[in-house]
Design a protein around this nucleic acid. Structure first.
Lengths: 327, 327
DNA sequence: CTGTTAGCGCCTTCAG
DNA sequence: CTGAAGGCGCTAACAG
């Protein structure tokens, strides 16, 4: 474990000088900088982040709070994780992953202390619902920098990132409508306390209003099975079915197939599912990995002293094919 | 940020005494222990892990190296992560997650330095293949404690955990065989350089030998699609199809269905897939979360000074039903 | 521009 | 059984 001292000795300078060079401070002559860098290379020196953190009071550690099983498959969570972790490495941030289940039943200040003890300065929150009191408290507390993905919070220390779900839902449903015809729309929404559920629904309402549609709404809780059942119950009476997730869209298509009727269906997510639906559909493609990377970038900005804001990455509408096996 | 000093002052003792109490050292009188604990509670004190790590040289940090997309769905990776992370918290270990993709193209000593700078002492490796040179080097280097999941390595500082794949494959295939009849078996194996692929295949060979089966082997690379194609090509000529993963078994069943013939099928994994196969099948049920927890426990033991060994958690054979939507 | 000197918060001998 | 003192490796004023 070669330390900064060794480097200093090797280069014939003081430790502080080495520190300056290593951390890219300006006031060091080109000459000594060379010397130091040489020594660093020869000794294969890499600064000890622990010591650095303790000394500088800047640990650069952030926690990824992820809510499993709230929505679709775990594939989404993996995308989020991978996007965030990769970007974190580039931003030189240290990441620890925390599942909601690990903290949900603990008190707020218990959790706060836990994070503080861990020198965690920032929280990336994925999949927060309106009923997650602990998280709301942590955001309000402002003790941490937080970036909430798909939950509408902004304050001095809090940013949020997420596509414009209302607009996206509006767009994809409208497109599907244009390609077909009809006035009666069955909308299979998400979960009761989800933020995205609410926003997407708002988009549907706007469309319904503008187009004079008769909109029937049911909650499918992002479950394929429920969507299937809802479609059995209400699908025949509708001219088109719009779903708040691809998974539910698959369920709906599956039901339609069994009922042996055709109705245009649109989904939301653009994830790679293995499923056999037998039809094509329009969907909103969100790139979870990219969104998560943006979130991590935003976290880096906040940690640098930036102030909270709202970010809305773009999305695209695509036509996905579930005719055959997708793997 | 209340520190150990505050506690010491509050309790009227020296910092070292507080440290002893907090870390559960023996030589402290019951009386002062009480005093200190009282102060700790009143001041809501939690030791700063960063400082503790720096001072004690024991950071208790481990990295989870996970290899995405090598096998089955991401669901498996999530199970692994969640199992490991939860257990880590109980063991008071700090965890960082690293994806192979982040390090695969870097040199070994580059990676070693990176981990050392991060004060990482242990590596949990998931999904290593026979061609992962970097990982092999890290294991041989013995600079870290490592626990390899499903890869056969043991040395002073390395343990491995994984069910007995050969036996499990043998068992499930045999069971399926007994419930039906036939001599010609199509075995759809995994990936070229996978350790589990090799072991499972060995199990199949043993069974074939014992039962006098004629065994046809093809690699399906854990892909549903490939398994489906292989089944179209060779399924009709076989009396039974054994697959090295559930996902592939689904593919095989799907093909059989389209071919409108019946053949018993068995899989491996016992994961929750959403798929429509139309049949039941036997499978080896692995609890990835539990295996991962065991791995983390083993890591804790190694860090305590334990020496490497091989662990083989149990598994069970179950009958899974893919007749309808599983969500 | 470079070196000296305090700490960061905690652990750990080592006297008392 | 308890407390004082010396670091862990690095950063950040502050002199020089």
């Amino acid at each position: 474990m070669t330390s900064i001292k060794d480097v200093a000795r090797r280069a014939g300078v003081a430790v502080s000088t080495v520190s300056k060079v290593v951390n890219g401070y300006p006031n060091v002559s080109e000459e000594t900088r060379e010397k130091v860098n040489g020594a660093v290379r020869e000794l294969n020196f890499t600064p000890n982040t622990i010591a650095s953190a303790l000394s500088s009071k800047r640990a650069g550690r952030v926690a990824l709070l992820i809510n499993q099983s709230t929505q679709a498959v775990d594939e989404v969570a993996m995308q989020y994780l991978s996007g965030a972790i990769n970007r974190a490495q580039e931003e030189k941030l240290d990441v620890i992953t925390v599942f909601f289940s690990m903290i949900r039943d603990r008190g707020v200040d218990d959790i706060v202390r836990y994070f503080q003890a861990q020198s965690i300065e920032g929280l990336l929150i994925y999949g927060m619902g309106r009923d997650d009191d602990v998280l709301h408290a942590m955001i309000d507390g402002q003790q941490f920098k937080v970036v909430a993905v798909d939950a509408p919070f902004v304050n001095e220390n809090t940013s949020c990132v997420g596509i414009d779900h209302a607009q996206a839902q509006y767009d994809v449903a409208k497109k599907t409508l244009r390609e077909n015809r009809g006035k009666a729309v069955l909308y299979i929404a998400g979960k009761k306390d989800g933020y995205v559920t609410r926003e997407r629904l708002a988009g549907m309402w706007r469309l319904a209003q503008e187009e004079g549609l008769s909109l029937t709404v049911h909650r499918g809780d992002f479950s394929e099975k429920k969507a299937r059942e809802l479609t059995f119950a209400h699908g025949a009476g509708a001219d088109m079915i719009s779903c708040a997730s691809d998974l539910m869209a698959i369920g709906a298509m599956r039901a339609l197939q069994e009922m042996d009727i055709f109705r245009p269906v649109c989904g939301f997510d653009g994830i790679t599912l293995m499923g056999y639906a037998g039809k094509q559909m329009n969907t909103v493609k969100q790139d979870f990995r990219r969104v998560s990377a943006v979130a991590m970038e935003e976290m880096a900005r906040l940690l640098e002293g930036g102030t909270g804001r709202r970010l809305t990455p773009g999305y695209e509408l695509v036509r996905m094919q579930y005719l055959d096996i997708i793997s």
